[in-house]
Design a protein around this nucleic acid. Sequence first.
DNA 1: AAATATACCAACCGCGTGGGT
DNA 2: CACCCACGCGGTTGGTATATT
Length: 264
Amino acid sequence: MVKATLVDKNGFRKGAWSKEEDDKLRVYVQKYGHWNWRQLPKFAGLSRCGKSCRLRWMNYLRPDVKRGNFSHEEDNLILQMHEELGNKWSTIVKKLPGRTDNEIKNHWHTNLSKKVKRNQSVSSGLVDKEQSRETSQSEDSQTEKSETESVSVNSPPKPHHQPDILENFPSQEISCSEFSSMNNDSVSSSVKGAADGFSPAEIFQDSVSDFWNLPFLADNNDNQDGYHSLLFTEEVYMHSYAFNYDDDSIDWIQQMMQELEYSN
DNA sequence: AAATATACCAACCGCGTGGGT
DNA sequence: CACCCACGCGGTTGGTATATT
């Protein structure tokens, strides 16, 4: 199910994601969160546009994405919600934790919409014997499928690209909307929560004064309370703020990231 | 076994929206 | 108010797997 990889006019790779790209994106987002999808590929060392990265993460790499086929309960819920809401996939997906809007949309178009059409035909008396036979057959196979699949729903298999490096990776994702919408005050406030007992201004000042002396704190070995990820978030923020994402700062972060990767 | 049709689904694309300036 | 930017949503495309002839 992969598209041939090619390059668009901006030099961004398109098409199928390689395992290496997946790993880079997964490691990056799990460590640092997706604080800005547009900038993220540069920092993660990916030649992809931010949009593509976001989609890949949301639909495939997110640790809580539930793979495998849909259970009867899920099917019924989708049918019911779709009847109420129409193609509001983002709303429907909220009722199906672990599923993605893309997955639900695909499932709808490939399975459920046909089911609905058949049911409508049945109810309007347009179906002939042959069709009803087909229907019952496919329903049966569907049932069979769903029964075996409900197991996979309860214990979702991990994405097939899951590298060993992430086996013990606690997720410390920072929501894009949460972070990217932060202004100076809110960043300071969030840090205040982590640093406990310091005023935003103090934290901010301390961050500035200590910035060049701080080690790179995004360390997987010590993230019990997410404190380090918060510190890192602040650090990246400060750095990007100070340098306004110029090439030097990007190179600097990339270099640091590489060093981190090698040290793991 | 080969050719063709169909199903599936990852990824792309365009547009709307909201926040910031 | 207008403009820009980043993001999210929904529709669509197209490559691969599987079934059928």
